[in-house]
Each structure stands twice: as C-alpha cells, then as structure tokens.
Design a protein around this nucleic acid. Structure first.
Lengths: 229, 229
DNA sequence: GGCAAGCAAATTGTATCCGATTGACGGATG
DNA sequence: CATCCGTCAATCGGATACAATTTGCTTGCC
C-alpha cells in the first residue's frame, strides 16, 4: 500500500469488488469500516468512500449506524437484475449487428480462445473471464455508458450466482459464446438475441432452481426482519 | 439543515442533483468542496461523499486536486447517453406491454393531466415533470433496478439538454406522452416503441442541431485538454 | 425461568487538522 | 522580449478526533 498513482479510494474499491465477485467475501458478511481499513492500511475515510461506490453498484448494502454488509439480494431482486441484464445485452447485440468494429471479431475470438484455455477449471479466473466476455461485447458497441451499465449488472449477476447457484464452472458455456459471435457476424439480430436470451436464461433459471440449503442464516435473516421492527 | 432522519450525505446529494437538473448549477461550473460545504452548513467530508455519488451518476466530473465541476458532456458522450436512454426506454415499453399493473394507466394519465396543467410554463417544474413521466413508466415495470438506470439517464439527458438545447419547454410534448400510453394499452409493442423512439429521437436531434455559439469557452475547454496533458 | 430496564462497549456519523499536489504569479536570465 | 524557474496561495486527498447511535450484556424484578 506504499505508492499508487491512482487514488487510494479506487484501489480499495477495486480490491473489495474483486474480493466480492470472487466469493472471498460472501453475501451477508459484515464489513466494519475499521477492520477493512486496518487490513488495507488505510483510514476509515477511504473505506467509507469506497463503500459509497460499492453501495451504488449494488454490491454492498449499508444500514444506518449498523455498518456495511455484502449484498444479499433476494430472489426478487436477483430476478430484476437478470431481467435488466437480458434487456441490456439484447440492446448490445442489436447495436453490434449494425456496427461491429473491424477488430471486434478478432478480439472476441481471442477472448474465447482464452476462455477455452481455462475450461474446466473452477476458479476465480474462469468466473472473471466468463463475465468479461459479456463486458467486452458491450465495449465493442463503442458506447462507454452502455458498457458501464452492462459491467455493473454482470458483476451483480456474479454475486447472485455465488448466492444461489451451486457452481460457477458452467455459468457461461464457451460454445454459446462462439455461437453468439457467429450470429452477430451473420447480421441476424433476432437470432443472435435468441441465443443470448437462451444463454442468459439458462443461467438465471439455474439460479432460481437451486434451493440454498447451505445458507440457512441467509434465509432466516430475511424472515427475521419481520419480528424485529 | 437542522433535523434530518436521513443522512446528511443524502440530503446534500439530493440538493445538488436538483440544482443541477434545474440548471441552477450550469455545466462546467466549478464546485469547490469548501464553498458547497459552508453553503449547506456541513463539513467537507459530507460534500465529498455526495460528490462520489454524483460522479458515479455522471452529473459531475472531478479532477485530482483540481476539484469538481458540473459535468459538461461532449457531443459524443451526449449521443451515448441518448442511445442508452433509447435502449432502456424501449425495454421498458416491451415489459409494460406484457405486464402493465392495474393502477398503471390511472397513474400515467394522472401524471399527464398534471403535465398539461403546467403546459407552456418554462420553469423547473415543467422540466421535472417531463422527466418524471419517463421515470414513472420505468417504475411501473416493477423492476427497481431498471427504474434506477432509467432515472439516471433521464437526469443526464436533462443536463445535456441544458447544454445543447435552446429551451426545455417543448422537450416532451405532452401529446406524445398520451400517445405512448395509448400504444401500450393497445399492446402493440412495436408501435409503442416507434412512438417512443420518435419522441426521444426528436429531443436528441434537436440537441444535436443547436450550435452552442453562446458557450465558446466550453468548446475551447474541450480542445484545451489536448494541449495540457 | 423469563422479561424489562439500564449501563458499557463497539461502531458509525460528522468535524477538524495536516500534508501533498496543482496552478498562478512574478522575477531573473538568455 | 520570450522563456524558464522559484515561490505562494488555493484546494484536495487522507488521517485523526470527537459525538451520536446502536448493540449486547448485566442486573434486578416479576
């Protein structure tokens, strides 16, 4: 934590984000400002700034005078996030079918090859790459605003899957990524969107099916709110 | 500024947001933390927290050790925001055609009547209501995540129009709002989207046509970035 | 044995303070 | 006369200090 050309807040923000999406920090886990601060060797001020951003991104939730917690979306919230993701990624496809940049296909195929290289490994790298494919698609539209929103929902989806899905390993079938590329190349927006919907639908459905028997305290915490107003 | 049940940061955030979209704070205007803080009677800490959120929402831009400025989007950025807005609002229409809630039409028509009541007045109220129609549409989807994104881009569009458009008075033709409601009621998603696209397209085009001869320093400030890395 | 009230500890909300970086002004110099 | 460099004021990034609120535990009472 010695020298950064970027601001400390950014660094802490990125680190926490990474920790959350890699499931190092599990949903519902408490994040006291002091603890985080002294862990990274920074003051509470910095941590607090990072928390503001993370809360805005939906990755943590803060309650007045009670502290910050890693977000623990309900099924409803999760469905909402997935719905927005489907909408946004459909829009991305539509735009790409109209104006895919020259180097676009090369970059996409290169990324898919990268994904295939780590296929089967059930680690943080695979999780990250799977998400980054979708973020790369959004970036290729040339619209940074759209790309930021896509990146945000993709991240939240990672968090959601870590709550409700059993394993990350097959979140994004690499084959389907290739299919999406081909569909876009053919210029058939409807077909490409159909594949993407199927691709994302499968992920969302899988999340909805799993009963989170391994996180009893998570379930109870939701019911508990009723008794303690 | 005496008693708030919500946190001070929220209050400052809301106030600044309101000031920006009502053009009280004009794009490019400087926002020193001290000034804002003592103006609202709070410390710089609070202001900085509010700034973090505002920057995330694209309403202000901060430069290291130089302070915060009301966002001054370039034409490219503005086009990107409008594009995302078109995408998101089309998605909203699609969803509403499938599942408009019972009270939805009542609330929409009530809002339109409210808009007609202030028709012709070129004040902050008209600006706010015009945007809130679109935000209300998004909220009726029942998806808060989508609603938040729509609210964000609508706000940014307000800011953009205050930069590039001559007048806010005719941003949202109230008649077109009624047409949109009717199109959704008929269940014809394609038609409704077409109207919405036209509605938003007109606004965007108007913004693109106006040459901002009245803000030379704004133009130069953009070119100036090239010389001063 | 259970419940309510009250006290102590922990944690957040806010303010103030110090150091660092930036931009500007002004004088020295080729 | 233009350019360069040093000093200075302004402002932000970050740390620390204090106040307010919540929480959990203890204690006493029913």
């Amino acid at each position: 934590m010695s020298e950064n050309k970027t601001t400390l807040t950014d660094a802490v923000h990125d680190l926490l984000k990474k920790a959350i999406i890699e499931q190092a920090l599990k949903p519902g886990m408490r994040l006291p400002e002091d603890t985080v601060g002294e862990q990274f060797g920074v003051s509470r001020t910095i941590v607090r700034h990072a928390f503001v951003r993370l809360e805005h991104e939906g990755l943590i939730a803060t309650r007045r005078n009670r502290g910050a917690f890693v977000a623990e979306p309900t099924r409803d919230e999760a469905q909402n996030v997935f719905e927005v993701r489907r909408c946004l990624e459909s829009d991305v496809i539509r735009l790409l079918c109209k104006r895919m940049p020259e180097s676009g296909y090369d970059r996409l195929e290169s990324h898919v090859r990268h994904e295939q290289a780590v296929r089967g490994k059930d680690g943080p790298v695979a999780i990250r790459l799977a998400g980054e494919f979708h973020i790369l698609l959004a970036e290729l539209t040339g619209n940074p605003v759209l790309a930021r929103y896509v990146a945000e929902v993709v991240l939240r989806c990672s968090l959601i899957l870590s709550l409700y899905a059993r394993s990350h390993s097959s979140d994004c079938a690499v084959d389907e990524h290739s299919q999406i590329i081909e569909a876009i190349r053919s210029g058939d927006a409807a077909a490409a969107i159909a594949i993407m919907e199927h691709h994302l639908g499968a992920v969302a459905d899988r999340a909805a099916l799993v009963n989170p028997q391994d996180s009893i305290q998570s379930i109870l915490s939701h019911y508990g709110k009723e008794l303690a107003p």
